[in-house]
Amino acid sequence: MTITQILFGVFAGLACVSAIAVVLVDNVVRMAFWLVMALGAMAGLFLLLHADFLAASQLLIYAGGTVVILIFGVMLTATGPFASLKSSAGQTVPGLSVSGLLIAMLVSTIAAVPWTGLGKAVGRSPASLDQGVMRQGDLAAAMADSDETREAVMAVTDNWQNRVEVGRSTAPLGLALMGLRPDRDLIAGNKPSTLSPGYLLPFEIISIHLLVVLVAAGYLARAKRPRATEEVHIVTAGSSVTPKEHRIDAATSESADG
């Protein structure tokens, strides 16, 4: 038993149990609770996979943001206290059995594929991964000319890839989103003729996408438009003054006064 195995067991067990509980529980808010548990356990698994930044994003965006908004939605749409919509057995039994079959199929496929063939392309043993791991300032280290830091220069070129391996992936992730791939291009002894492509365009697209979603969600969720315009219509029909006309009246009267 290694530490990783124990932690994996805890997080994986919590994730699976919570995910199953999400399916089986009827009350929506209890579902949200189990969803938070599942998402939190997934963040733990992300940490085990050395994806610190993704784990933090998962907690901030999913568990702290999305689930809160979902519960907010439940509160806004609840017709009674603790309302739960029960599905009929005619829906539940086929649904559960189909998804059970799906899980069985996926698991059997996973068991059947020889994953060892997908090993690391770049030949580096796990033991060497922990060598030469540094934080901020690796490239600056290369510029310094004392003997000790000079020794580190060779490690620096390989370092960017190592950072990804050992969970210090925040800076490489950010650079990849800016279109730079030091983890690909800065490998010792490897002189690429062209630089690897980054993710600048997807990053820009997703930014625009988020803006569009922001506007769209705000527009969709606002109070119903037809009723508001109807009211204005009725008011004008009843020969009373709408705000716009009122303003015009005020302006004209002012100019008349002047």
Binding site: A19, V22, V28, L70, L85, L96, L106
Partner: peptide
């Protein structure tokens, strides 16, 4: 795979729109 299956089951089984979102 288990999480995927559970999410799929949520889509099939639940009638509440927000529950489906959770799936």
């Amino acid at each position: 795979a288990i999480l995927f299956g559970c999410g799929f089951a949520c889509l099939l089984v639940k009638r509440n729109a927000i529950a489906i979102l959770m799936g």
